[in-house]
């Protein structure tokens, strides 16, 4: 049939549809590829690089790379896991991730990917940056020390909320998330119900006064690794 494409991921032959990315095809086949900047409903960003896979031996980001007939994709190999661990470690040391008092802990995707990769502690030295907090808004705050620059809020605000509240400023290690105003978050037209607020995978963009609502033990990633929902699809196709 011409409307399916056959490819191999970690030795398993799967079927995808033309136009799909490797990540989409893998998701549908119940194979989880770790990710942080990718989110259902948003255009792929390709920035966190956690979804790096080998396509016919060459590294590519699974969230942006389209499938092609006969490609051989490696997802779970020692080499790739080492690269992913390095990337996740970098994200941890590049910011200040004090999980013990972070409202997102237990539901945080960065933490969850680290758990899934079995990281006990990052292998790189902590940088202890000072990127600033914006708590001006009555209902929402930004903690830039926790921001992983995935751009999910930027895209969600643009594409889902139709607002353009967020953007990036600076470059290199000085790159920061910024709001669409000279001053502060409070001066933007963001609303606490915006999709952008939900889109943050970490504790960088949070609603005020709703932290720690779920007790430890009942949070999203307390018992099941991130990606378990995708892996449940396995064999169901």
């Amino acid at each position: 049939m011409s409307d399916t494409i056959t490819l191999t991921i970690d030795g398993v032959e799967i079927q995808g549809k033309p136009g799909q990315t490797i990540m989409e095809a893998a998701d549908a086949a119940g194979i989880y590829i770790p990710r942080l900047c990718a989110m259902d409903g948003l255009v792929p960003h390709g920035s966190c690089r956690v979804c790096t896979v080998m396509v016919n031996g060459r590294p590519q980001s699974a969230c942006t790379q389209p499938i092609a007939p006969g490609i051989v994709v490696d997802n779970e190999t020692d080499e790739i896991n080492a690269i992913r661990r390095d990337i996740v470690d970098m994200l941890f040391v590049e910011g200040n991730h004090f999980c013990m008092f972070c409202e997102k802990s237990g539901n945080c995707e960065l933490q969850a990917v680290a758990y899934r990769l079995g990281i006990a502690a990052p292998r790189f030295p902590f940088q202890f940056p000072d990127c600033g907090i914006d708590a001006s808004h009555p209902d929402i705050f930004i903690d830039r020390d926790r921001c992983i620059l995935c751009g999910r809020c930027v895209r969600a605000s643009q594409d889902l909320d139709g607002k353009d509240v967020f953007g990036f400023v600076g470059r290199g290690s000085e790159k920061r998330i910024a709001v669409n105003s000279d001053a502060k978050l409070k001066d933007t037209n963001i609303d606490v119900t915006d999709k952008a607020v939900e889109a943050c995978p970490v504790g960088a963009l949070l609603k005020k006064r709703v932290g720690f609502a779920v007790p430890i033990g009942q949070r999203k990633y307390d018992h099941k690794p991130i990606g378990s929902d995708i892996e449940q699809n396995k064999g169901s196709l």
Partner: peptide
């Protein structure tokens, strides 16, 4: 390279500093 990285992706933004 640290100065000139665009900062978009993690390994280049954070890795070069390390």
């Amino acid at each position: 390279f640290v100065d000139e990285s665009c900062g978009y992706c993690t390994p280049c933004r954070a890795g070069n500093v390390l």
